[in-house]
Amino acid sequence: MFLAAAAAIIAAMLLALARAYAGPTVYDRILAVNHIGTQTVLLIAAMGFITGRPDFLDISLLYALINFIATIAVLRYVKRDRAKAEPDS
């Protein structure tokens, strides 16, 4: 059962990876990476059940928080970069 869930999550991750590769704008890529991060959280939780080690849930919890901070940080970086590239705007 958990293997089926993990397979579905990995398939969706591959789709998101394709979007991150193809995405026309940088925001599409950030959205796709954020999406992959959320799926990683679920995948780590499923892996914890598959291997029978509930310690994985701590890593999953941590990843949920880091994923959010990473998205916000990259977003700020991109914004500042744009502002520097176009000083008149």
Binding site: Y27, L31, T38, V41, P54, L57, S60, A64, L65, L75
Partner: peptide, 20 residues
Amino acid sequence: KLALIFVFLLFTSPVATHAL
């Protein structure tokens, strides 16, 4: 812990989407 993961996702994901 699983419930806590869901609560964190529920707090962080709309904020990230809104910021994006």
